[in-house]
Write a protein that binds this DNA or RNA. Structure first.
Ligand code: MN
Ligand code: MN
Ligand code: ZN
Ligand code: ZN
Lengths: 144, 144
DNA sequence: TATCTATTGAAAATGATTTTCAATATTACC
DNA sequence: GGTAATATTGAAAATCATTTTCAATAGATA
């Protein structure tokens, strides 16, 4: 059993929730890819393995995984929430290609530091930030 | 007549659109505040001066102002689009207080430069970016 | 003024996400 | 293993910001 399942189980026990096969399957499928899936995409994958799991259950599982720190929401501003692994994945920013939709995960410590000092300069206590750079990826730049 | 009205008029003429009193009023009210209003907030202000202007017309005016470079959309991730002046306002980022909703407009040239080089390192051609730092503003930090 | 067609406002539609609710499954306890 | 208490499920309905539809109206041009 992987660490993530343990974390979920611990959370479930601590909050008087219940272990269900639906949650187990949804978690495994979520963990099986590093893609940033939408609820709809995750539901489609889930249905391949178990056609009886409903849309709503997937949405509810996402909220649950978010609460126990396994998942975080990523908003690329197109009206669709996407989800990424949180456990074992440090903070990072995204370069988002507006041609093909692909994205690159990046981290630039000097930018992070400058953000800290920028906030401090304004008497602002930062808790989180969102940096997204939109543009054209290498591959899309080539295909004239 | 301010410069913004001229820009709108020029755009309207160039695209075979029509000047209307609704558009004129909505533009003036949009320009009268530096707040980042939502469509609903803008509509409420508009109705104070002219109660016959509909919701839909405000939405349509927003799209129009956006097309002629007078307005840009700001998405703080709460499901509501807000709008800010674009003409005469350079690019900037936002510090957003999650307690009171206020925000501070900031620009840090060194961060901008580092973003450029970050993109370049990944063969990525940036067109725009979004940097938002969420946290607690000075005033909200004080009120224990 | 006449004509063409862009604009308007109300109402309906959209689409992602959330809520409701009756049926079912899980857990703790006997 | 039963049994009761209650969390979970899935389908359908609701939500809510925004967009579309459509018939009536108004702006531009000649
Ligand atoms: Mn990511
Ligand atoms: Mn701003
Ligand atoms: Zn690309
Ligand atoms: Zn504040």
């Amino acid at each position: 059993m992987h660490k993530e399942s343990e974390i979920l189980e611990r959370y479930i026990k601590s909050k008087d929730l219940r272990h269900t096969p639906q949650r187990e399957k949804i978690l495994n499928i979520f963990l099986s890819t590093e893609k940033h899936l939408s609820a709809d995409e995750l539901h489609k994958l889930v249905k391949k393995r178990d056609s009886d799991i409903g849309y709503t259950t997937v949405y509810r599982a996402i909220k649950l995984f978010s609460k126990c720190g396994l998942l975080s929401e990523v908003d690329f501003g197109d009206g669709i929430m996407r989800f990424e692994h949180k456990y074992g994945h440090g903070h990072h920013d995204h370069l988002v290609c507006t041609k093909c939709g692909k994205f690159i995960e990046v981290i630039k410590p000097r930018i992070e530091k400058l953000q800290e000092s920028l906030a401090k300069e304004h008497g602002f206590k930062p808790t989180r930030h969102k940096l997204q750079i939109f543009g054209t990826c290498r591959r899309c730049s080539m295909k004239k």
